[in-house]
Nucleic acid binder design. Structure first.
Lengths: 331, 331
DNA sequence: CTGAAAGCGCTTACAG
DNA sequence: CTGAAAGCGCTTACAG
């Protein structure tokens, strides 16, 4: 129960509170001997500076909000972990804000950010609605976005090259001998989702294969909808590229449940490269996003925003994780 | 960019700041007409009360920390989501603190909690080390624990009845005709982990089956270690109860990778009842923990700590989610 | 019902 | 190098 305040320490050490303050926040401004004495007394009293009071007075804190749509999606969970680690290392504390796919609350978080005197915030938008909110409420604020933001080049962004990712998946499948390669989109609305989808269409066309997009009707569980669609097509795809790992899991579960073996009958490749994908059956071949880098660079961009450096738009290269959910087509 | 402070609003409204303060924090203490006027002016200025300053002055905030060991485990992710929702509904903001399985940092969070003037905190311990830290640093603090705490009845707890959960799994398997039912422990160290393990041993004995615990050696990936162990046993179990869903996934992945079909050759039941379990192949039979209730009750317990009510120890009943990873043994 | 004053725990020019 | 003073944005007894 440490209740000691700066004045308690000052009294106990026989100095003025400003000296105590300096001993902690600006050590070089106080004589070594004094500083050590103050620090010792502070330790005895179990004193720790109060970040709230500090933030209030300085009008700036080290609390950086990370806004994500759904902590339950392992991709965002891994992203949160990586970003928290990167932030911590730089002396920031990440505070996780989960919007539950409700774009509107992003605005609330941007407001909260001001109240916390955050130096900057990081948002991984669930939909473009979020981005709208950001522009409206966030102008003048320091925000970095984990996605592309086409209309406003003034906000720094980190993204993974979606096109390249889809290409990696497609070429892997083509090399295996697949010709009928379909795409399973998931939740739409972000630039990222759109990029992957468009990339698929272009790349398929480039390879001379007719694009087949396995959309699921609204309201039906994604895995089931996608597999229904797959079955209904006159020419059945021998491989499916899922727009993310969670969808790939759902598709595989549904496929297997209906007696279609993966990869024997259909190959499936995911997108994200989650650790979890190595621990499901079959182990998921997937386009790996460098999640650690994503988090680290997001923090970097935030810091360079503080320094008034140039606004950067980083695009990271994905790689392919070949595991067991893909094989050559059954001839 | 809302920078208006309480004094700005007071000036613009032609009243004293204390009146503005009351209009927001204690509306009934101010004349209706005055209040409405103040609120209108405040809205025009984009004023919002600053929670930092408020917390500092009141010496109490609505920030409640949830300490969890690993956000990357979907169980904790779902728990975080449920708890955040419950907290929000009660007017608290959950701040997620992830210890990364590093028990020592729990102490740091308890300190942080004081700095935030948190009314109470919720901790889901990764190991008993956490609980130690809690007792040492947290005495006098208001903490509720999402696990059992044997040695200190003064801290309120919510738990799921592990014994009953294992029993549900065991009986389901026994009913299916299994006699050789093994148990796959995962990370150990919490009371929960120990409870499940002990329950298994007792229940197996009670059913007249020799307990078989499939431990994995240190340093080897859990799924692989468990399956190695399973294969090495002279009498091979026809069913495995995993200590949690993530371990069940890993075991199934490893089993299938080595050509052992689930549930044809071995049945596997998980523990947690994650949504994700419904979207993997085969869909996972699992003991369902009422995660929503867990979160809601944790917040309840926190609040009743504030009211000085009696310390409660809630134990919630699990249920069984029968899906496709279990079937009768191959005869 | 409203105002004036003190103070939460800290930082930071300004003197000395 | 250290102290005294003002102030971050708010709340809450205390008067009136």
């Amino acid at each position: 129960m440490t209740n000691a305040s700066i004045d308690d320490v000052a009294a106990a050490a026989g100095v003025h509170r400003s000296t105590v303050s300096r001993a902690f926040s600006n050590p070089s401004a106080v004589r070594t001997q004094t500083r050590e004495h103050v620090l010792r007394v502070a330790a005895e009293l179990g004193y720790a500076t109060n970040p709230l009071a500090q933030a209030l007075r300085r009008r700036s804190s080290t609390l950086v909000p990370l806004v994500i749509p759904d902590i339950t999606n392992p991709f965002f969970a891994e992203l949160a972990r990586a970003t928290a680690a990167a932030a911590e290392q730089r002396g920031y504390q990440l505070v996780l804000c989960v919007t539950e796919n409700d774009g509107s609350s992003t605005a609330g978080y941007v407001t909260a950010m001001q109240a916390m005197y955050s130096p900057f915030g990081i948002v991984a938008p669930s939909t473009r609605v979020d981005l709208e909110a950001l522009r409206t409420y966030g102008s003048g604020n320091r925000v970095v976005v984990l996605d592309r933001v086409e209309d406003d080049p003034s906000v720094p962004t980190v993204t993974v090259d979606s096109r390249r990712g889809v290409e990696l998946a497609f070429e892997h499948l083509a090399l295996l001998g697949h010709r009928a390669i379909a795409y399973a989109p998931g939740i739409v609305g972000t630039y990222t989702a759109q990029d992957r989808h468009e990339a698929y269409e272009e790349i398929a066309a480039g390879h001379g294969v007719a694009p087949l997009v396995l959309g699921a009707p609204d309201g039906v569980e994604l895995g089931r909808g996608i597999v229904d669609h797959w079955l209904a097509e006159p020419v059945r795809a021998t491989a499916i590229i899922a727009s993310n790992d969670v969808i790939a899991f759902a598709v595989i579960a549904e496929l297997e449940a209906r007696g279609h073996r993966v990869p024997d009958e259909v190959s499936v490749v995911g997108f994200d490269g989650l650790d979890l994908g190595a621990h499901v059956a079959p182990r998921l071949t997937s386009v790996r996003q460098p999640i650690g880098d994503l988090g680290r660079i997001a923090v970097d961009l935030g810091e360079s925003l503080l320094d008034g450096g140039p606004v950067r738009h980083e695009v990271l290269p994905p790689s392919l994780l070949i595991r067991s959910s893909t094989s050559g087509p059954r001839s």
